[in-house]
Design a protein around this nucleic acid. Structure first.
Lengths: 227, 227
DNA sequence: CGGACTGTTGACGTCATTCAAGATAAGTGG
DNA sequence: CCACTTATCTTGAATGACGTCAACAGTCCG
C-alpha cells in the first residue's frame, strides 16, 4: 500500500499543494500508485467508487456512455483529481475513466480521504475550492456545447488555448483531433469541417499546430454573427 | 440587515439543517431577505457575486445566455442554495438567476459565508457534500442533453418525476411546459412533439397532468431501441 | 514498402429548430 | 358571467445543422 512517491510530487497536486508534512506522510502511507497505458480503463460507470485519483503524469478522460455515442465530461491533466465527488457522495462512479496515453496516478482510498477532510480543515477548504472550480468548468463546458454551434465551439476552444494578447499566435493542440472533437461534443468529421470554416477568419492548421492570425477576428464570430 | 426569519425556516435548508443555534443566529444577524416576483431577475451573468442565496419558497432558474437561445443549468427549489460556487471562486456570476413565480430567498453576504466555512468544520463538510451533489446533478443533466434525443430526454425526465414503483401513475409537471422544454434543452415545439411520440408508449397528458401507464414501457425506450 | 491509424472530403439522411398559423387555456374588464 | 385579450400550447411545412456512411489522402512505424 505504500506509494513510491516523494513529497514534492504530491505537492504538485492542487489538493495537497500546501499540505503539511504529516498530511503528506499520511497520504503516502495509505495510498498506492497506478500506471496505465493508452486507452486503458481506470474504472467504469456503475462500479463502486472506493478511491480518489490524482494524475501525476499524462491525462485521463472522464466520459459518459450513451446508446452509441459518448460524452466527454472532462480531460484531467497532471495535478488534478477525479472521482472525488463520486467517492464522497454516492460511492458509485457515474462516468468512465480512460487513460489518454500512458499515465501515472496516485490512488487514495476513500477512508484516507474522508479522514483527511474530517480532521484537517485546510484540506476541507481545498476540496471546496476544487469543487467550486469544477462546477465553473462544467458550466463553461455546458455552455459551449449547448449554446454554440460546431464552428463557434471550436473557435471558443482554440481561443481558450491561445495566450490572451492580441495579434498572431501559434497553438499546439493538446490531444489528437478525434478526442478534441468528442470533448467538444461533435464528430471528428464535424471538427474537420469547422476547422475549414475558420480558415477565412485567419486560422490555419497543419497537423497539430494551429495558427491564429488575429484573436479579434475569431472573437468577432461571437458578437451577433454567424460562421 | 437582520432577516425576519426563524431558526426553523433556515433549518429547512440543506446547508444549515444541522447547524447549531449559534450558527443560525450568526446567519440571521448577517443576512437579509429578498422577495421576488415572477420573471424577476436576482442577478445577471457577469455581475459581482457578493452573496449566497437560499430559496425558502418558490423556485429560481439559473441559466446561461447565448446568442439567442438560453440554457437552463438548474431549477433551484426550496431548501437549496445557489451562487455559492461563484461567491467562493471567481466572485462573478457566470449565470443569470430569474424567479420562476413569486419566491422568497435568504441572502447571505460572502464574508458571512466564508467566515462560517472557515470557523465551522461541520459547515465546510456540508458545503462539500452539497457541491458533490451538484456535480452529480450537473453530470446527469449533461448526460441527458448530450446523449439522448428529445423524446428520450422527456421520457427520462418524466421517469425521474414519477414514483419508483411499477404500474400506472400520475405525475403533475412542476413547471410550465415551456420552462421544462428549455430545461431539457429543446424548444417548446419539440417538447410537444416528444409528448406525442410517447403516446403510443402509454403516456397521456392533459394540461399539466401526465399519466404513465407503465414505467417499464417507457424505460424500454432506453435499452437499445428508438422512439 | 506495406499496413494501420488519423484526418479529410463529399453525398445523403435525420433530427430538431424555425416560421407561421391555429387551438386551448387563463387572465381582465365591462 | 360573458366577451375580449393575452399567454401557453399544439400542429404543420420548410429550412438547416449535424451525423452517418463511404471513400480517400496523409502520416507514422515497423
Amino acid at each position: 500500500m505504500v506509494a513510491p512517491v516523494g513529497h514534492e510530487e504530491i505537492r504538485r497536486t492542487e489538493l495537497f499543494s500546501e499540505a503539511t508534512v504529516e498530511i503528506l506522510d499520511e497520504v503516502i502511507a495509505g495510498s498506492s500508485m497506478g500506471t496505465y497505458g493508452n486507452r486503458q480503463c481506470l474504472y467504469r460507470a456503475g462500479q463502486p467508487a472506493d478511491r480518489v485519483f490524482f494524475v501525476l503524469e499524462g491525462e485521463v478522460q472522464i466520459y459518459l456512455r450513451g446508446n452509441r455515442k459518448h460524452a466527454v465530461l472532462s480531460i484531467v491533466g497532471a495535478g488534478e483529481a477525479f472521482a472525488l465527488s463520486a467517492v464522497l457522495e454516492t460511492g458509485r462512479h457515474m462516468g468512465t475513466a480512460e487513460a489518454v496515453g500512458p499515465c501515472r496516478v496516485l490512488e487514495v482510498p476513500a477512508p484516507v480521504i474522508t479522514g483527511l477532510i474530517h480532521r484537517h480543515p485546510a484540506i476541507a477548504e481545498k476540496v471546496i475550492h476544487l469543487f467550486a472550480l469544477r462546477l465553473q468548468a462544467m458550466s463553461d463546458h455546458f455552455e459551449r456545447i449547448q449554446l454554440m454551434q460546431t464552428t463557434q465551439r471550436l473557435a471558443d476552444y482554440l481561443l481558450g488555448l491561445a495566450p490572451d494578447r492580441p495579434g498572431k499566435c501559434e497553438v499546439v493542440l493538446p490531444f489528437e483531433k478525434s478526442l478534441i472533437a468528442t470533448y467538444l461534443g461533435m464528430e471528428p468529421e464535424s471538427l474537420s469541417r469547422a476547422m475549414k470554416n475558420l480558415r477565412p477568419h485567419g486560422l490555419t492548421c497543419v497537423g497539430r499546430k494551429v495558427c491564429i492570425e488575429d484573436r479579434n477576428a475569431l472573437e468577432s464570430l461571437f458578437a451577433e454573427g454567424r460562421a
